[in-house]
Design a protein around this nucleic acid. Sequence first.
DNA 1: ATGGTAGACCTTCTA
Length: 259
Amino acid sequence: MKIATWNVNSVNARLETVLKWFQEASPDVACLQEIKCVDEKFPTEAFESLGYNVAVHGQKTYNGVALLSKSPLEDVRKGLPGDDSDEQARYIEAVISGPRPVRVAGIYLPNGNPVGTDKFAYKLAWMQRLNDHAKGLLALEEPLVVAGDYNVIPEASDCENPAAWADDALFQPQSRAAFRALKWLGLTDAFLQADGAPHSYTFWDYQAGAWQRNNGIRIDHALLSPQAADLLRGCEIHRDVRGWDKPSDHVPLVVDLDI
DNA sequence: ATGGTAGACCTTCTA
C-alpha cells in the first residue's frame, strides 16, 4: 500500500500537475496540504474519477488539508484536538478500511516564522497538541502513519546550508526538540528507516534559484507507529516533480507498506 | 547583496 504526502500549494492552481502525478504514481492513499480552498471549491470529482474517496478539511485562502483513498475512509476526524479556538485547517485523520486497516493522519504543521512572535508560539503549542494526540493514537497499538508538511528540518544534514536556516523557525532548537519528542513516543521516520541518504530534500524555495542550486530542505515527513514500521517496504521522495511545469515548492513523499 | 517567487485576493499576508 502506497501512502503519499504532498504539500501542493493550492490544489486548484496546481490541478493539472497534481492529477498528472496521481495518474503516474497512483498512490493508494494521499495526504494533501495547503489546498488553499474551502471544502466546496475542492476538485472532488476530478479525484473521484481517478477512483479516490475524498475527505476535505478546507479553509479560505490559507492552509487546508485533504485525505484521498482508493479504499473507503472511516472514522474521519477534522481538526487537531486540544484547542477549540484554533480555526486553522491543518489536520485530518481517518482509518483506511481493508483486511489490515491503517490509520492515516495528514498534517500541515505551522511554519512559525518569524521566531519570537505569536506565530512561533502557535507552532510550538500545535506540536505539543500533536504530541498529546499521537500518544492516544499510539495506545491503540494499530498501524498508524502521521504524514505531512512538518515544517521542521530535523538535522543539519537535512539541508544544504545550515547557517542560512539558523534564525528560521523550521530549524530552531525548540522546533527540532519537539520533533524529536514525537519520535521518542515510539514513532519511526519512514524515510530515514528505508533510505536515509543525507541531503535528500522535499522542498526547494521558489526564490533565488533554490531548485537549480539544490538549495533544499527535508521538511515533509512520515512517522510510523511500531505496527506500521513493521510493515515498511520503502519510502521515496519524488524529486523530479519539482522540475515539472508549474511545480509546487514541495514534492511528494511516498511510503510503501506491506499491506 | 536583506534581494528573490508564488498564490489568494483586493492591499497585503503567508510561505
